[in-house]
Amino acid sequence: MSASIIVLVEHLKGNIPEISYEMLGVARKIADASGGKVYALIAGKGSSALATGLGAADVALVLEDSSADVMNDDVLIEALKQAINEKQATLVLVGCTNISFGIGTRLALRSGMPFINWVKDIKTTEGEMVVTSALFGGKVLSDIVLKDKKGILGILSGVFPPDAGKIAKQPSIEHIAKPEIKSKITFRSLMEPKAGDIDISRMDVLVSVGRGIQSPDNIPLAEELANALGGAVSSSRPVVDQGWLPLTRQVGKSGMNVSPELYLALGISGAPEHYEGMKGAKLVVAINTDPKAPIFDFAHYGAVVDCLEIIELLKEEIQKRKGTQ
């Protein structure tokens, strides 16, 4: 059976994020192996122009709509459902992202296809498809067999190569009509991050703190270390949720994408949501008491110690080398 795959392409402020290319790349691979087709569904203001760059797809299904920068999920789900029916889709790929959150599950109920979240691998054989889902922030993996190779998959960011989805040709464009539905949700505006704080995405050195920092009283210690290194303090989600640092310092899925020369992670476990925001870092050093913390899988150097025990000593060593002490 040849695959017919629909990829939901995201875009925000005129940019298509890497996850969309990552999905197009893996879709292309699966389709080519079975002589199938890839459809890229893109909706909202500016879709027509963006669709021309989706060369990894055979066909771009374009729902141009000047009324909103961000499409209503209710409209997207219905458009996807219609596309599934028309294209006899066997697979639908949506990003495991905030912007596409909740689309896969609801589409699953409406289309009768199963939904698998947190997908980090897809293996196809003649007879079946094995999908690997990463649970507990990647600490446990689960294989699920799709016997008829049909399903809706929520794809994790950063697990498939984006370059495979960037093919320099134009897909054929097929315009689709906006489904007529009555939604009780209205998109009002896009809110930019609050200005005023430092911009962590521009820093060369980040000392990033996670749960392991334990208390807001310890944040100044991290700040002193960051100063010694000529950088700034950033953090993982729980620290911001606790109100210990402002949202502008959060690295990850909802927060900022950073790519410093040095990312020093103190007491951060390294869940996929966090990895997504700091995968561009050139040098990653992780300090964590848990030797099995996922962060050690993508750090260059690591130490299994309590970050609170090393902060002060590290600051002293750095100052010694810089001759400031």
Partner: peptide, 13 residues
């Protein structure tokens, strides 16, 4: 929440 600190404001009944 979206990404990169961007957020969306919606009205819902």
């Amino acid at each position: 929440e979206f990404s990169s600190g961007l957020r969306g404001e919606y009205e819902v009944e």
